[in-house]
Design a protein around this nucleic acid. Structure first.
Lengths: 192, 192
DNA sequence: CCTATTCTCGACAACAGTGTCCAAAAACCC
DNA sequence: GGGTTTTTGGACACTGTTGTCGAGAATAGG
């Protein structure tokens, strides 16, 4: 029928995501993406349909990956705290890895583009799901006596998520692994 | 000698700060500032010297105000937890007040312009000071038995700051007072 | 009242970035 | 091999933004 694309759209989206993640929306021009992805301008527009749409696609992909990690944690049984430690370690590594401080794409998006309803909805939805997931696991851990019971699960989940996002912000200022680990350790200790 | 300014530079800086705070750097054009401050373009450039410099000046002003609030808390004696509650209440109100979700200017700046060394330094310095201040008060509260002693003060301070910044991020996504209060309550409960 | 200095306002040059157009090239099917 | 469809790459129109220029207005001092 016709000519086939010379690049892999999925791979391109991943690269675009990393660039948007590091530099943010406003500091990422289409020209830069064309240059760094090694894809023609027109191909980029044809495939993804413009900067805003490409950004949202990148955000969706990040969100899917992030939720997969969280669900993987949910899927496993056993005590909560070791699972949480593992999860937090991943959060730290992700926030620190890369040429510069990236933090978390969703947090960055919320801060930088909270004004955009589409972006905001995308972000809010993710964190609500994550909070629900955490709250359920925390409630179970409270019943088994692993987590203190003087704070209700929902509030504990919100606060834990707060620490996690605080870690991401801290990582964006200064990606020092030991600082983030200290926060993670303390947060876990406080739960019991 | 000469004509005097028709506007108050200090007041103008305050307004500019609020606008940068709400919309961020890239989404705030000089033309918009000229329009909304009611000041001539040239006057703005003469007084503040360009967008980047105006932004940094606004950031400095915010930082000064924020540190003043923190020091006010430090100055007062008595048990720590009530003071912290008061402080957190202020944080919540500040993050929620305004026509839209503002969060914290410094957090926003760190996320949006972490790439700029000047901005980054400004932000890092502030949070380091704040962390030190908190750590000192927490250490004292530990000695008096008000705060649990199984986590060292520095780590506790980092984590508390993490929750606070997490609250600011949450506020930027969805400025719901009850959610932020729940986080603040839980964080305080976890300290004891 | 006059002069010197500073402020104010509209206009604008220079620049950067987005999204589109068009011609050429490439792949697939007949 | 020819025709058709799609991709590709460069050029470019258009828009929006920054920072500056020059003329005119306002104020303080002589």
């Amino acid at each position: 029928m016709a000519r086939q694309k010379e690049f892999d759209p999925d791979e391109a989206l991943t690269s675009a995501m990393e660039i948007f993640w590091e530099r943010g929306f406003e500091n990422t021009t289409m020209s830069a993406l064309v240059r760094e992805l090694g894809i023609g301008r027109q191909s980029l527009y044809d495939t993804f349909g413009g900067r805003q749409q490409l950004y949202e696609a990148a955000l969706r992909r990040y969100r899917t990956d992030a939720m997969a990690k969280a669900r993987e944690m949910e899927g496993r049984s056993g005590p909560l705290l070791p699972l949480l430690r593992e999860y937090l370690d991943e959060v730290v590594e992700e926030a620190v890895t890369g040429s510069c401080a990236k933090g978390c794409f969703l947090v960055n998006a919320a801060v930088e583009r909270g004004g955009d309803p589409g972006v905001r909805a995308l972000v809010v939805e993710h964190f609500e799901r994550l909070e629900g997931l955490l709250a359920r696991r925390i409630a179970a851990a409270q019943r088994s006596g692993e987590v203190r019971e003087d704070v209700e699960p929902r509030a504990l989940a919100k606060t834990l998520l707060g620490v996690i996002n605080g870690m991401r912000v801290a990582a964006r200022m200064q990606p020092r692994r030991e600082d983030l680990r200290a926060m993670a350790d303390a947060a876990l200790r406080l739960l019991s």
